[in-house]
């Protein structure tokens, strides 16, 4: 089985995250990390290959720092990595992102058919959760997203996911090849072992440009974005905050606060 895992390098959640003056996510803080939810995707892929055999290719797009994200994937057990690196990518929206990733998945597939594309449920910077679906549309493959449980039947060539939606629990079955996204319920990502970290140093990271993939630069990046940020402003801190210590009447004061603020 050949599995491609799409990962993203994002600003560290614990650091102060901000927008640049021209309305982009500031990626220049130097404290980026592999999107935490993508660790679940790498784990799912590596576990499937451990069970059924095959190989895992970890794929990312983004500036030079983004290589850290695929390196982490390699440390966790992916076999090879692809980094799409091109100045024209900067400022891509979800559509540009999906187009580039789809082109890269096709290029990877040219070297041997891809059975499964796995992603995390969201990137913790944008939190749109739409790239897996767009990727599936671009590739013309079935989508089975938000898997809390994921099983593959290599004989039947199917993938089954159980997912918890807002109003229901569903089990979906898709034919392979397919695009799946996994949630943070799907597994417990392994911590790279010393051996894994050492082995990752010898694993190849291939760098591709948009030209290598045949993607028109005007389709992606700032040029191709269908939306534009007009203004990004830090939210003012909440005013008039009150902190009290319970002296025996805090419950009454809570009720009074709700009444006073017309919340009951």
């Amino acid at each position: 089985m050949k599995i491609v895992v799409c990962v993203k390098h994002v600003p560290d959640l614990q650091a102060e995250r901000r927008f640049t003056d021209d309305g982009r996510v500031d990626r220049g803080q130097g404290d980026g990390t592999l999107n935490e939810l993508d660790e679940n995707a790498v784990e799912a892929a590596v576990a499937l290959v451990e069970a059924h055999g095959g190989e895992v290719v970890v794929l990312t797009m983004g500036p030079e720092d983004a290589e850290d994200a695929v390196r982490r994937g390699l440390q966790m057990g992916a076999d090879t990595a692809v980094h799409v690196l091109d100045a024209a990518i900067e400022g891509s929206d979800a559509f540009g992102t999906a187009e580039v990733l789809a082109a890269a998945v096709r290029a990877i597939g040219a070297e041997g058919p891809v059975d499964l594309v796995v992603t995390g449920m969201a990137s913790l910077d944008g939190l749109m959760s739409v790239v897996p679906s767009l990727l599936s549309a671009h590739l013309g493959l079935p989508q089975a997203t938000l898997a809390a449980e994921l099983t593959v039947d290599p004989e039947a060539r199917t993938v089954r996911v159980r997912r918890e939606l807002d109003h229901a629990t569903e089990v979906l079955e898709a034919s392979l090849p397919a695009v799946v996204s996994v949630t943070d319920q799907a597994n417990e990502p392994r911590y790279p072992s010393f051996k894994g970290i050492m082995a990752a140093r010898k694993k190849p990271v291939v760098t591709w440009t948009l030209a290598d993939l045949g993607v028109d630069p005007s389709d992606v990046g700032e040029a191709g974005a269908r939306t534009r940020v007009l203004e990004a402003t830090p939210r003012p801190p909440r005013e008039d905050r009150v902190l009290i210590t319970d002296d025996g009447d805090a419950g009454l004061r809570l009720a009074a606060y709700l009444v006073e603020n017309r919340l009951v």
């Binding site: 905050r241 009150v242 902190l243 009290i244 210590t245 319970d246 805090a250 419950g251 004061r253």
Partner: peptide
């Protein structure tokens, strides 16, 4: 928090 209460939730909540 607009209103923060340092206290035991098992006494504050029932009272509220």
């Amino acid at each position: 928090a607009d209103l923060g209460i340092v206290g035991d939730l098992f006494t504050v909540l029932p009272q509220a």
